[in-house]
Write a protein that binds this DNA or RNA. Sequence first.
DNA 1: TTCATATTTCTATGATTATCGAAATGTCGA
DNA 2: TCGACATTTCGATAATCATAGAAATATGAA
Lengths: 114, 114
Amino acid sequence: MAVKKLAALAQNSRLAIFRLLVQSGPDGLCAGDIGARLKVSPATLSFHLKELNNAGLVRPRQEGRFVYYAPDFNQMNALLAFLTENCCGGVPCDTASACPPPASTPASSRKTSS
Amino acid sequence: MAVKKLAALAQNSRLAIFRLLVQSGPDGLCAGDIGARLKVSPATLSFHLKELNNAGLVRPRQEGRFVYYAPDFNQMNALLAFLTENCCGGVPCDTASACPPPASTPASSRKTSS
DNA sequence: TTCATATTTCTATGATTATCGAAATGTCGA
DNA sequence: TCGACATTTCGATAATCATAGAAATATGAA
């Protein structure tokens, strides 16, 4: 749902988190690193990550004691597509997919959630 | 900035309002018509329109007793560009502008209320 | 097992938001 | 001018949200 995704991004900390994850590539970052970089307390960070996860914009992946969060580019593309189509007079981008699809994920487990 | 625009769209009524305005073309719709179509009470509608206006996504234009609201495609494009660039791994759309620019405003068609 | 670390959940609190009735403001037509 | 209509502002209320300390959970290491 578009509203859910929009709401997930419509908050400073969460937008910063998502941008950081996008910059950090498809493997993502573990929660602790995100918190350290953005100076967010663990509890607050967990709250925001859950929110992003509920919106489908990030995928958590447990690795030992750490939980890595990676952006879901497909979901982000879906949001862009919705906005382009529904909020832009129906004039879509030429490119069907503006974000790099998660085809190459060299790290570990292959998960597909929507 | 982006958060403000995202927040403006991250609400069911407001997203519906904005979509309706986009569908209705560059002339926009007067507040009363929007309220009638979407079944939103005047006070609530005014609240949401102010929110959209504060975010820069719509432009109000007084015409007699009526206030017409039209989408600002440039601002919407700016949001799309931001999301594509900052939240999509920096892989932009080929098209520089996905939304029709407000260059030509054929304000000839006059829609009347109820 | 026991400890240290990573993350989440619980809980409380203050802040923001959405809603709408009622009143106020603004504009037109008679 | 007045009265009707369009819209906004005011005021109150309920709901949701952001924050973070403290406790709980989970995993790896010693």
